[in-house]
Design a protein around this nucleic acid. Structure first.
Lengths: 205, 205
DNA sequence: TAGATTGTTAATCGATTAACAATC
DNA sequence: TAGATTGTTAATCGATTAACAATC
């Protein structure tokens, strides 16, 4: 498998498959066919098979896929067969929710530091952390060798913080600020903006 | 323009354009070319023009697009030239953050009711609201004629609540629960799951 | 063995890009 | 008028689907 050749749109579906398989494993199931998995996540069986076959032959004719084995392989492919330390920037309501979110650790992530530039917040507790000063952010992220950050600052501050994150060596940013970020091609950004998601649906309502 | 003929992928980009234009209008700009808008949001100029031209001729050769006019048209197309009332189900950390979020109202949305099934939470305040019992949810949503809901309940409860929302007449669900929902084709779902978004990036890190 | 389901190929379908006449 | 930029066409590129031999 060559990372450069795998279409981004396929990589985007793998976490969905992974999540569904994780739930099935939890409920005690052992094997699943492309047909069944497809129905569960709303994708055609042919596409499931094509996507998975990019990375190897993980299924068995007549039987389908071993859930445990496919889980293991997908975790390897997506590199979530480990725990990634994550820095959180912005200790507002959304930052608080993410700092306390229980859904990261069994999916491969762990928030390990939280930053804000508000002097009233710095030093306060948030989840298990103490809010740190963004003034020290670059240094702290560099020395902890953190590659992933979540951004929950107001829009006007987001680009500047993103620049700092890039300088600190961060390679993946989950951006909650309602603005498109400008980063080098080597840095990935994913966007979460509830208004954007809602506006994608009102057209059809 | 015929809604049935517009590809979903184009509709998905319009809110991004809208958000960028809104920022530009706020900063006092008057006109913009497809080239400039494209650079801002990371899309080719040809695609910007093609996307917009699905809905009419809104630009001027030699000049580009009037920002105010394009804003107006995009809001019309996406039906966010009004305020949509939104129901929020699940008063956990994420529900609190969304109930207090300031970024909805100038984007076309307003949270107007919040539900939870926890007897300790029901009756308590959250933002400007009092948390209501999910037992009354279907009736309340129906009589308020609400078409949009946000779901921030734990995964095991999500499908059941989604069924209730559909029964109440909701046509668009923004789902924060980490699970794929099964709903009729006439109902739209958008998914926000931070772990999924992070897992789309680790492959490349 | 018979039935089921994969992995893969070829065909179809859809989206993006390049290019340019029209025109502001 | 000269320069700039749209809207649109045709060409290219990429993704999805259908179908089936291979095989568990």
């Amino acid at each position: 498998m060559n990372a450069d050749k795998i279409p981004d749109i396929i990589i985007g579906r793998l976490p969905i498959y992974l999540r569904a398989l994780q739930r099935m494993a939890d409920s005690g199931l052992r094997t699943i066919s492309s047909q069944e998995l497809g129905e569960m996540v709303g994708v055609s069986a042919a596409q499931i098979r094509k996507d998975i076959s990019q990375f190897g032959e993980f299924g068995k004719q007549g039987t389908g896929y071993s859930i445990a084995y496919l889980l293991e392989k997908l975790r390897e492919i997506l590199k979530v067969d480990r725990i990634w330390n994550v820095a959180l920037v912005g200790a507002g309501d959304m930052g608080h929710a993410l700092a306390r979110y229980q859904g990261f650790v069994n999916r491969g992530f762990k928030v390990v530091m939280v930053f804000d530039n508000d002097q009233n917040k710095i030093g306060q507790h948030i989840g298990d952390f103490i809010i740190e000063d963004t003034a020290n952010m670059i240094e702290r992220i560099k020395s902890a060798n953190i590659k992933i950050a979540m951004l929950t600052v107001p829009a006007p501050a987001a680009q500047h913080i993103a620049d700092d994150l890039v300088e600190a060596g961060v390679k993946a940013i989950l951006n909650y600020a309602p603005i498109s970020l400008n980063v080098p091609k080597s840095v990935k950004v994913q966007y979460i903006d509830p208004s954007i998601h809602l506006q994608r649906m009102t057209f059809y309502v």
